[in-house]
């Protein structure tokens, strides 16, 4: 489904290669976790895949069901079935969460040549999904992410995921800034969205999130490429031995 092959990317205007030949395949139904030290290229990977400005792909490819992602605008990638749950969701004053969700859903439907969802059907769906994820009615009526706590913002990201039903969902440091209860709620939400048709790419710094969202595969990203892959136990090894211990001394995280 998601095929990343020998991906090289730089930050525009800077010489430094951030991604240096990253390859990865996510098949339907699989949950992959990408772990890595600060500056290893984790967020760059998320942004390059979702089409944020400011990055330049110098080599390699990324396709979703055979479609070249790198040629598409961010909104076209969303329509193709890619979703990125962001580390820092943006606040949109004056636009209610509910309205935004419907605009997003209908934009994607329109791009796919489907009919817009009726107001009634949308309300039914959003209530159902929000209920499952523990997102209250009050949060739906508020402006998008405005004045939301860290946990509410992340839960809201997962609600968007649940509404947009992507083929592949990328979670960028979804656990950052969450206390243990909020982490559990968010993880429960993600687990509900797991299905045989959907792939997940979970980017995280710590293995804690993976106690709740159990991955099929764990990859260690360092120096712009995947240095090691394994099953869930690799995450536990990392927790115990650190990046240096697992990958060798040259990969030890620099502590400022």
């Amino acid at each position: 489904m998601l095929e990343i092959n020998n991906l090289h990317a730089t930050i525009e205007g800077a010489d430094k290669q951030i991604l240096q030949g990253l390859s990865l395949t996510v098949r339907p139904g699989e949950v992959h976790a990408i772990m890595g030290p600060n500056g290893s290229g984790k967020s760059t990977l998320a942004y390059v895949l979702s089409g944020r400005d400011g990055y330049e792909v110098t080599e390699g490819s990324a396709t979703l069901d055979g479609e070249d992602l790198l040629e598409l605008e961010p909104e076209e990638r969303a329509a193709a079935g890619l979703f990125l749950a962001m580390q820092y969701p943006v606040e949109i004053p004056g636009v209610s969460n509910m309205y935004f969700l419907r605009q997003a859903m209908n934009s994607i439907r329109k791009a796919r040549g489907e009919d817009e969802i009726s107001a009634g059907a949308f309300m039914k769906l959003v209530k159902e999904r929000a209920g499952l994820l523990g997102v209250g009615q009050e949060l739906l009526k508020r402006d998008v992410n405005r004045g939301f706590s860290g946990g509410e913002k992340k839960r809201n990201e997962i609600l968007q995921l649940a509404m947009l039903e992507p083929k592949i969902a990328i979670l960028d440091e979804t656990d950052s800034g969450l206390d243990i209860d909020a982490l559990r709620t968010v993880a429960d939400g993600v687990n509900r969205m797991r299905s045989p048709e959907r792939g997940f790419l979970i980017i995280t710094h710590y293995q804690r999130l993976l106690d709740y969202i159990v991955p099929d595969h764990v990859h260690v990203l360092a120096k712009g490429r995947i240095q090691k892959s394994g099953d869930r136990s690799l995450a536990l090894d990392l927790e115990e031995q650190g990046y240096g211990g697992v990958l060798g001394a040259e990969f030890a995280e620099v502590v400022a």
């Binding site: 089409g51 961010p74 990638r77």
Partner: peptide, 27 residues
């Protein structure tokens, strides 16, 4: 740009995203 990207990543085309953010600015 981060806000613009956020909206586009949710499927809104650039013109709509710009208008929505401009509206939000006046909020």
């Amino acid at each position: 740009p981060a806000s613009l990207f956020y909206l586009r990543s949710r499927g809104l085309d650039e013109a709509l995203a710009r208008s929505m953010l401009t509206f939000a600015f006046t909020g």
